[in-house]
Nucleic acid binder design. Sequence first.
DNA 1: CGTGGCCTTGAATGTATTCAACGGGGGTGG
DNA 2: CCACCCCCGTTGAATACATTCAAGGCCACG
Lengths: 232, 232
Amino acid sequence: MRQDELTEIRALPLFRNMEAENFDRLFRGAYVQTFPQGVELAREGEMADFFHVVLDGSVELFANWNGRKSTLATIHPLSTFILAATIKNGPYLMSAQTLEKSRMILLPSTDVRAHFAADSGFARAIVLELAQCYRVVVKSHKDIKLRTSPERLANYLLRQSATAADPSSFDLKMEKKRLASFLGMTPENLSRSIKALNTHGVEIALNNVRIVDFNLLRDYAKPDDLIDNPTI
Amino acid sequence: MRQDELTEIRALPLFRNMEAENFDRLFRGAYVQTFPQGVELAREGEMADFFHVVLDGSVELFANWNGRKSTLATIHPLSTFILAATIKNGPYLMSAQTLEKSRMILLPSTDVRAHFAADSGFARAIVLELAQCYRVVVKSHKDIKLRTSPERLANYLLRQSATAADPSSFDLKMEKKRLASFLGMTPENLSRSIKALNTHGVEIALNNVRIVDFNLLRDYAKPDDLIDNPTI
DNA sequence: CGTGGCCTTGAATGTATTCAACGGGGGTGG
DNA sequence: CCACCCCCGTTGAATACATTCAAGGCCACG
């Protein structure tokens, strides 16, 4: 691993408060690797050999059952995935694959567990990360149990809008097929939900989203911090 | 707090590896309290003042949005709830109420955070608990996104069966209304799902569940460790 | 003996999925 | 350069699934 990479990684919240000596030892066994699009990084059911930190690109977390597939989350820099499996030394509950060319850190799970036990600064950072992951899933769970499909889409668009350079015009960050799965509906149904939002202040053409009437959209979507605010 | 209670609590995985001095200090500010049925212990959106450990009874975690309500989880002894909110010093994402007369420990959130930072044994136990909570929610999320209503019911019954004294005959542990909400359907729909399972080896009369043909039920339910096994 | 909550059932409605068909864009290979 | 094909996205129609509304039975409780 290059020195400038190490410096960059050392500044991450997850490693910032680690003892210098522990950091050095942990990263002797680490890899920083760049994967092309479509690489399977983890398969559900297998043991968690590596803990992953996404530095660039994006990763899809998904699960299969009985021939069906569902996208459960998308991981962007600088976030991590499958921390819980690493900590518990258990099997992955989700599969992971790169959505684009992506660069990430791979830390052997045994090393992570060892340092987690020995370094309280690291342990604290891990807990914060894990608590964050937990709350993200809980919000997703509330989203899907309390809202209909078009309501989920409407709130998704408002969340995307909040992070976009231009809140009233931005592009969808993933193909619609995947977005549909993430939002818990079929691609056909996403198309219909998109049309349905025309009457609520949204116009979507190809991948471009234009919010023409925020008040109208918010009236319909009823966004709620306890579901939609990613920072709390 | 009584001495025998303290001894019992000290043996819990969460506190077992805590420094004796820290344990004593933490529990100077703690309460052990017994609540009647139906008491609201937390309301979503409020700040997490207390971390809760359920010693006896059971607690429902639920959430509201736009006039709708959904049961997200039921907590049994000896488990905890709203740990993530405590750690992050954020608002509760879920409300909590006792389902029956229940006894639990209440630990002021500020004390938990302080000891978590200072006591690495405690920090490690918290991480394991948090990782467990995370995996429970992920499983629920997979359950609801990948399965239909009767499939969710069928797998729920198999999970209950696995913990029952008699696997082929046991009682439902909550009222059907609440079970329906937990499983992500209406009470009416639960009634119909129950009837539908008659053709898959299950007979439910009032609260009593009799599994008359396990192979038939398993063929239909297709239980999966990565969704249904609570121990991994 | 009434009353209210829970559960069930039926019917009507609403929502979502499936199946089928079609058009457009991007890539491949002729 | 063009023809072709495949995948994605859209649309319509049929079906399946789920919710709502209404009604009635049962039990627990006052």
